[in-house]
């Protein structure tokens, strides 16, 4: 971890550090924002850790807990909403025993996230499974896909 952090830091030391960019790179590297990363950047750049935390909790993109091996992202944009996104989301959550807050299965395999809009509106409702787009989908179809993920 330290090596990755040093690496990220080296690109920001000169410019003084943009908190969002730092967090984005950290999350790209680890899938979430580890506490140690924030403490490290805070110490090295003299940016208060509280600021990192404030930013990390403000933006929907950032996760403070590790992410599952697989990621299911349900679009909850308007077009998807009127085509039943909510039902699909709650169906997935029910199946995997996760909630909005506890969004990762206990075995750490799958994380289920909502996203405001993916821009696939004409394909609503849309769910991403590990980045692959599933348009005009149903709860059953997504669950089937998830089950096949687990077998992998």
């Amino acid at each position: 971890m330290q090596k990755t952090l040093d690496n990220i830091l080296s690109r920001y030391r000169e410019s003084g550090g943009n908190v969002i960019s730092l967090l984005q790179e950290t999350q790209d590297a680890f899938g979430y924002v580890p506490r140690e990363a924030v403490q490290f950047f805070s110490r090295e750049l003299g940016i208060a850790a509280s600021k990192f935390y404030g930013v990390a909790t403000f933006y929907a993109q950032f996760r403070l807990r590790p992410v599952g091996k697989h990621k299911v992202t349900a679009c909850c944009g308007t077009a998807c909403h009127v085509r039943g996104a909510e039902r699909i989301m709650s169906g997935i959550q029910r199946e995997l025993h996760v909630t909005d807050e506890e969004d990762t299965t206990t075995d750490g395999q799958i994380t289920v996230e909502k996203v405001a809009c993916l821009g696939f509106c004409s394909f609503a409702p849309v769910v991403l499974v590990d980045g692959a787009v599933h348009g005009k989908t149903t709860t059953d179809a997504v669950i089937k896909e998830i089950k096949s993920l687990r077998k992998k």
């Binding site: 943009n18 984005q24 404030g54 930013v55 933006y59 993109q61």
Partner: peptide, 20 residues
């Protein structure tokens, strides 16, 4: 980084500056 309010000009600016 995922915040609708950043469509608002001053919020967008804060966000480019790396802040909330």
């Amino acid at each position: 980084a995922g915040a609708f309010v950043c469509g608002e000009e001053t919020a967008l600016i804060a966000s480019i500056e790396g802040m909330r």
